[in-house]
Nucleic acid binder design. Structure first.
Lengths: 220, 220
DNA sequence: ACTCGTTCTTGAACACGTTCAAAACTTCGC
DNA sequence: GCGAAGTTTTGAACGTGTTCAAGAACGAGT
């Protein structure tokens, strides 16, 4: 049989994620998780050093699902706008069950000390996975994106995705309709905006933006 | 003599802000604040319904100072890039003493339920004050900003400012050098980018961006 | 001076996330 | 089988933000 240990870990994680979805982050107390899972509080802490780590579990799971669903959605779409839409919409899709809990999630994720912080070290793997989705969206698009943009674009789009996620968290409209609208409107605009890179005057500005991004990124 | 009540309130607020600056958000416990101020814990709660409200006090104070310092810095600067730089740099200046505490501040501010949430109702006044700074930066600039942009630009710049603040929080470089660099690089780029609005092909994209912003803003 | 209503102040109590020493259980060499 | 070493589990305890019933201080009217 599967390791008893691993079984307990899974049990705690499953119960926690279920409760996150059903009653939200704050109401899901460690004591409640333990009781529902039929273990002691201390035992839950044996597997997860903090409540934050349970959130990380959720983050990873959502990320994994996004990768799968997005890859599927990208299969028959060629143009950049469509591919962007696909990636963003599927992202929102997989997060949807956790919407009410989203703000607490973000509040947790945003502190540098958190293991869930998307910019932090503890979630390098998850971030890379997410970045890979955007890279594939950019690279697989035809007509192709201007070569000089191709390198940095995925990262910038991922950053924009973080912004969309933030918007989604605050979106109180029914079914987060406004976020959908934002995606549908912004994706084609980004694509069109990028195509302007051919215009000489614009091209220079683009170059400087990229230069700035690179400068700031590598500290120095 | 000044109201005893108001005196106590000020005392608690002053002690709290001082401790925030000196030992950070988490180490500044309500009990410690109360003890340092020579009042009971319950008494502190009589004036501030939560620790968050003490953060709001800080937010308002920082905002007020920014308004003053920014107005001064704008006095002899005409071009948009320079005016943007002035507003952003002074913003970072007034926040500087609280840098180490910044991440907790953001984590607090970002939850919709928080009184400090910059998008929320409880801080409408503070947000308006901040927005006013950007409006004055845009309106007072010469050469003037394209008319069709003038209405929405301050709000978009304010949004970008929130992004800069976020970057600043994560900026671990000495004296937040990287944030300064980002501002110095981005401000002229924004100004140059806006001047592209005259180019016909670009103009259309700009129109659509503004249209999207408006659509999303007013829900519908 | 005395009362009544309001404002201010107190400190014990609550639920929470988290810690930890000790107990229970497992595994493995022999 | 047996004991030792490791792994897993327990629940009481700590410090935190927050609440609240009770009391103290104050002010105005008589």
């Amino acid at each position: 049989m599967a390791q008893k240990s691993e079984q307990t870990r899974q049990l705690v994680a499953d119960v926690a994620l279920k409760m996150f979805r059903e009653i939200g982050f704050e109401k899901t107390t460690m004591r409640a998780i333990a009781q529902e899972a039929g273990v002691s509080v201390g035992n839950a802490y044996y597997y997860f050093a903090s409540k934050d780590e349970l959130v990380q579990e959720l983050y990873i799971q959502v990320q994994d699902e996004h990768a799968v669903v997005a890859a599927q959605a990208l299969e028959n779409v060629q143009d950049l706008a469509g591919r962007l839409k696909a990636v963003l919409h599927t992202g929102i899709d997989v997060m949807a069950p956790y919407h009410q809990f989203g703000s607490d999630f973000i509040a947790t994720a945003i502190r540098p000390s958190s293991p869930v912080n998307p910019f932090g070290e503890a979630s390098t793997a998850a971030r890379e996975a997410s970045l890979a989705i955007f890279r594939s969206a950019v690279e697989g698009s035809s007509p192709a994106v201007a070569k000089k943009l191709r390198g940095d674009l995925p990262e910038l789009l991922w950053l924009a995705y973080m912004g969309v996620a933030l918007f989604w968290v605050y979106d109180r409209s029914e079914g987060q309709r406004r976020t959908r609208k934002l995606i549908n409107g912004a994706a084609p605009l980004v694509a069109r905006g990028l195509s302007l890179a051919k215009i000489p005057g614009v091209s220079k500005v683009f170059d400087d933006v990229l230069g700035l991004v690179r400068t700031v990124k590598e500290d120095s």
